[in-house]
Each structure stands twice: as structure tokens, then as C-alpha cells.
């Protein structure tokens, strides 16, 4: 099962490398690679965000949690590739160009923020970190995923021209998954409420 997850996550980069060798990245390969790695990052982030509400709604799928960290790491992997395309193919490794971009372009700032937010998550993805931090703290820290996903979406919208709506699908998807959290919580609390033993109700009345 784990092998399958690895394969699924490596499939996009395999396709990209293959298309690169076949000279099949289109008329503007830089643009193709940039959008491809950026979108892959957001898609994988969406998957990690989907796991928690799905397993709460469908307890049978609880085992999905075992793959959340792995998928999250792959999201970071694609984010790094995406950052590399910028550093190499857009800025040409020029520090001056990057400095100027960061000081002048909110679009670059949002993207960089999203990547930076993912760094501590990637660094604390080991079992050792979870033990060290304690489950509760670790969970709290990893809520940064929400911020990273939102920053990533803002970055995407700021990077396309007015009138272009390509970021819409991922925005609705990730937005839906974030909104699903309080909704799922409310549903579960509602269910728990029903299950309250009558004694307790009586006790309340007293």
C-alpha cells in the first residue's frame, strides 16, 4: 500500500522528466514546469487536508491517516521543485533579481511564505519529532498546513492575469476542505449529544 502511495506521488515528476526528455513540454517549457510543480504541490496539500475529514466521516477509512505525513512530504518536495524553477529558470540564480522580486512582488512573497510555512512541517515529519514534541503540540504545529495552503492559493491567484480562472478549482476544493473541519466537528458533536446516557440528562436536571 505504501509503495502505491509512493508511486502515485512520484508519477507527476516521472511524467515531467519523461516529457522533458521527449522534448514535449510545449512551446514554453519553463512555464509548463512551473505550473506543473506548483499545481502538484497544491493538489497534494489538498489530499493531506482531505484525509482528516474523510476518516472522521467514514471511520472505516481511518487507516488513511498512515499516509498523511508521506503525502505532505511529497507536497513539500514539489514545492521545492517549484521554488527551484523560480530560482533557476526565472531569476537565473541572480541574488539581485531575487532580492528585487521579494521586495517588489507580493506574488513572490506569498509563494515564498507558503514554502517557508511548509519547512517546519517537513522538518518535524519524523516519528522522533512527534515523540519529542508530543502528539498535541505536533498536531498544533501542523495546523500550519492550513496557512501554507491558503498562502499557496493566494500566490496562484496573484500570479495569473485578470480574467484567468484556472485557480478556481483548487480554491474551491481546498476552501471546502478547510470549511469541512468545523462542519465535521459539529456533526460529530451532534451525534455524541444523541448518545448521552439518560442518567446524565437526569443529572443535569437536578
Amino acid at each position: 500500500m505504501k509503495v502505491l502511495v509512493h508511486l502515485a506521488c512520484l508519477l507527476p515528476i516521472a511524467w515531467l522528466v519523461y516529457a522533458g526528455f521527449e522534448n514535449n513540454l510545449g512551446p514554453d517549457p519553463t512555464h509548463t514546469v512551473t505550473f506543473f510543480t506548483g499545481r502538484s504541490t497544491l493538489r497534494l496539500l489538498a489530499i493531506t487536508l482531505a484525509i482528516s475529514p474523510v476518516r472522521k466521516l467514514i471511520p472505516k477509512l481511518g487507516w488513511l491517516i498512515r499516509f498523511r505525513r508521506l503525502v505532505g512530504l511529497y507536497a513539500f518536495f514539489y514545492a521545492c521543485l517549484h521554488l527551484l524553477t523560480y530560482v533557476w529558470l526565472y531569476a537565473g540564480f541572480s541574488l539581485a533579481a531575487m532580492e528585487q522580486d521579494i521586495s517588489q512582488r507580493r506574488f513572490i512573497v506569498a509563494g515564498l511564505a507558503a514554502w517557508l510555512l511548509m519547512v517546519p512541517l517537513a522538518l518535524t515529519s519524523t516519528n522522533w519529532s512527534i515523540r519529542k514534541l508530543g502528539g498535541k503540540n505536533w498536531n498544533r504545529l501542523h495546523k500550519l498546513t492550513y496557512a501554507a495552503a491558503i498562502a499557496g492559493l493566494v500566490h496562484y491567484w496573484w500570479g495569473v492575469k485578470p480574467g484567468v480562472t484556472t485557480p478556481m478549482f483548487l480554491t474551491l476544493l481546498i476552501g471546502g476542505l478547510l470549511l469541512a473541519r468545523p462542519v465535521v466537528k459539529a456533526i460529530r458533536e451532534g451525534k455524541n449529544g444523541d448518545r448521552k446516557p439518560p442518567v446524565a440528562v437526569g443529572a443535569e436536571k437536578m
Binding site: 514554453d28 519553463t30 512555464h31 526565472y90 533579481a97 506574488f107 500570479g159
Partner: peptide, 22 residues
């Protein structure tokens, strides 16, 4: 003079290999 998302100081040559576009 840049545009918000992009610097206009450089450009990508369409049809060039990826490492030679800039």
C-alpha cells in the same frame, strides 16, 4: 518597469530549450 507578478527585465524565448529560455 515591472508588472505586479513579473519582472520585465527578462523574458522566456518560446521554443528554446528550457535551460536556454531566459
Amino acid at each position: 518597469v515591472d508588472h505586479t507578478p513579473w519582472s520585465q527585465a527578462r523574458e522566456r524565448v518560446i521554443g528554446a530549450p528550457i535551460w536556454k529560455q531566459l
